[in-house]
Design a binder for these strands. Structure first.
Lengths: 221, 221
DNA sequence: TTAAAAGCTGAAGGATGCTTCATATTATGA
DNA sequence: TCATAATATGAAGCATCCTTCAGCTTTTAA
């Protein structure tokens, strides 16, 4: 199922405690370097240095730099996947509000108890300057959206997080769609419909068109 | 406002038609290389080659490779920003369904009339193999979610796009939050609340707890 | 105790790729 | 027409960095 390309497979599995430790420090160092220096300055030498091991050790467990990154990302993705599966099991058969809460908390918790790694991986593409641009565009869109919504409801100042959600909740679906196989017109059309439903429901709540749905805000942790 | 770091600024602006054309072909070539060969194989030499100009020409307009990427991404972001502002203007003062439709279509159209570029930029981080992993995790989460929802509603087979939206709509907000400044606990808590509202509303529709909201599905293009 | 296995080291090979600059070509406008 | 500015060229310098490997140290288990 998880068919990892051959060049990305681990070269050797640790058998002694010593090497398991080495593997751990290499992982940690990779994340640190990613966070402190960014992807473009992540070199095998630098990782090894930060980890306090020699480059040779690194290459004992990873056939190449790419495999190292793949492993780090794989770990994180597994963590997310695990968390979501648990959340869904916990939500199974429950009421809708609980399901929603499980999904949100499951995802956010999983991301947040690996904040450093999460940030590093998201920023992976955004070498300095580019993430700045992206942030500015988000700001710009948020302003425009706030402005539009203010035409219908004056007291939006306290709702900046809601505007933020409106601004960003379309990103994930589109990103995922576009990252996969070239999207078909049918998929695109279907996605349009669903996203409109998604936003419509949320905006109606936000603009006070529906009475607040009865649900307990389950503040886990 | 758009404070581009000095090393990323264009080195020289075209004054003759000839150089304007050169700039265009360089942009196009960059996108092509990004799509065909991926980020890791995007070299200035290769871009110049594909563009049919010399490397020197490239460096006449961009101080370095990073600036080239920044420019390409900047263009795309501007396009998105522009589109969203227009959408918001069009939606201003309209009914909620229209607003939702404007936002969705505005965003999707903007992304889609630069599909190639969109895909290239999203994949930028995901050198071969890593995007595969990500896709698998999405699949995994979608299955879990489908399973959970099926405990409440049997006929979900026809709703795969809805499940997809549930699976992915949390990504954007978290990604954006984490990519910016280190998130505060207050922001995190507020986001939890909002995302639960977002999902709750959508899930209620999906599970048939609310009568379908009256809204015209505005199929632009 | 000791041979074999596992793990570690880091200098150096080799490849790649960014960037420069001296030179050549083309365009402008007086 | 001609001087000047704009633009284009691409070989080569320079730096970086991935990766290997022969030898050394530590652990295992017999």
């Amino acid at each position: 199922m998880s068919a990892t390309p051959p060049q990305l497979k681990a070269r050797k599995l640790p058998v002694q405690a010593r090497s398991a430790h080495t593997l751990t420090v290499i992982f940690d160092a990779t994340v640190q370097v990613l966070l402190r220096d960014g992807y473009s300055r992540l070199t095998t030498t630098r990782v090894a240095e930060r980890a306090g091991v020699s480059v040779g050790s690194l290459y004992q467990y990873f056939p190449n730099k790419e495999a190292l990154l793949a492993a780090v990302m794989g770990r994180h993705l597994d963590h997310i996947g695990e968390a979501m599966e648990q959340a869904c099991i916990a939500g199974k058969g429950q009421d809708t509000a609980t399901m929603a809460a499980q999904l949100v908390d499951g995802f956010m918790d999983a991301k947040l108890d690996q904040v450093g790694l999460s940030r590093a991986l998201y920023q992976l593409p955004m070498a300095l300057g580019r993430d700045e641009q992206a942030a500015q565009t988000t700001e710009r869109c948020a302003r425009a959206i706030h402005n539009m919504l203010a035409s219908r409801k004056a007291s939006l100042e306290a709702q900046s997080m809601a505007v933020f959600v409106v601004t960003t909740c379309l990103i994930g679906p589109m990103q995922t769609l576009l990252t996969g196989h070239e999207p078909t017109p049918e998929n695109v059309a279907a996605l349009r419909v669903e996203l409109k439903q998604l936003l419509l429901g949320y905006l109606q709540q936000l603009l006070g068109e529906t009475k607040p749905q009865p649900h307990t805000v389950n503040d886990s942790q």
